[in-house]
Nucleic acid binder design. Structure first.
Lengths: 222, 222
DNA sequence: ACCTGAACACCGTTCAAGT
DNA sequence: ACCTGAACACCGTTCAAGT
């Protein structure tokens, strides 16, 4: 994260707004209106200033978003007691990251903005990598394993929040339902067979099941 | 997918532009300039019309993007010979979807726009679900298993294309590198240990490794 | 050093009118 | 039925000037 500008021996005008103030206001906007509501202009009026004043404290909107994610992670991803057993530790650490992400659906836009979620998440990453090593993987394999877990987790979040957003918007026919309604059971027998249950099945939260399968596979196969 | 307006017994003015023409132009713009270049206004000039004419053939920009993805999937996701062995069939089908996505990085924005990738992908989904059933999973577990594979795949794509975009932009310090450079090896020993290799390790394409681990785990654990 | 106003170069979409 | 022009209600960001 870019450092806040180093404190100088105030040889100029005293600042009227601070980085913290900006991020705080941004958090307010985002939590009550979604990330779509967060514009530089709106943020400016929220802090009682002008759009351009913001650019003195933040490089651009992208940096603001990363800052916001970092701030969020710092206040929600608190280290906690994790299981001693390495496999369970991996699952617990990944689940902690996942839960933090689930709780802030605006994350998706930012997720695609940096591959490192946040420094606050590093401790959990450490737990995952270390757990994999403790289970006998080489360090390299453990890092790759962590990556797979991260792909799975990020993907789940993206798909989940998109579906939720869609549901909230109320685009009713959902296209998928249409397609699944008239599926050719000769061509696509399994999908036709599962068609009427598909909606219910995909609505279930199976993050942990998939995670456990993935971890099992990472540990077992080599 | 919304149907093209049903053919009527032309009781009005003959159309000057068609849905196909619009999608074709959109594809052109997107493949040579990225999805960020695709605006309704630019698209209009590309087809030699006005922005508003487009809205006669397409509900809004979101529909246009879904249409575009569908068009893309239809022309790249051709059914092919898949291995007979169910486990390998699952891997091959997932890899086919993955490769199609890798080849069009603009997909990410659209990926988050519908949970059903495209009707053209359904055949591959069928192969995955059927493969899981053939390996002994119940239909419900198989559907959940497919979902896990989709999460993993979508996540890999999102993270990959974001990283690539970032590299292309040339944001040089990459924040991550900074953080990893001064990692406390007491606090985060594994990460510190892997720090100098992290970049290289995460640059490797390990999609298949992770996929195989996930599939193994899905099959083994129950 | 920090902030402001005005402006630039855009967006997606609606609405009323034309053919 | 299909298309157009003008307009609405926005964006992020730059630039030159003010204090």
């Amino acid at each position: 994260m870019p450092q806040p500008s180093a404190p100088r021996r105030n040889p100029g005008r005293p600042p009227r707004i601070s980085r913290e103030e900006i991020i705080e206001a941004a958090r307010r906007i985002v939590t009550e209106g979604g990330v779509g509501r967060l514009t530089m202009r709106r943020l400016a009026t929220e802090v009682g200033s002008t759009p351009m004043a913001l650019y003195h404290h933040v490089r651009d909107k992208e940096e603001l978003l990363v800052l916001l994610l970092d701030d969020y992670a710092a206040r929600t991803l608190r280290r906690s007691e994790l299981p001693a057993h390495p496999r369970e530790r991996i699952v617990a650490a990944a689940t902690a990251i996942h839960e933090a992400l689930v709780a802030c659906p605006w994350i998706v836009e930012v997720l695609t903005a940096d591959d490192l979620m946040s420094t606050s998440a590093l401790w959990f990453v450490e737990q995952i990598v270390d757990g994999l090593v403790a289970c006998g993987l080489s360090l390299d394999r453990a890092v790759h394993g962590y990556r797979s877990i991260w792909y799975y987790t990020a993907g789940e979040i993206v798909v989940r929040t998109t579906a939720a957003r869609r549901r909230a918007d109320g685009d009713p026919p959902t296209y998928r339902e249409q397609v699944f309604a008239d599926l050719d059971s000769n061509e696509l027998p399994r999908l036709a067979q599962a068609a009427d249950r598909w909606g219910a099945l995909t609505a279930e939260d199976t993050y942990q099941d998939g995670l456990r399968a993935l971890v099992d596979g990472l540990l077992v196969s080599r």
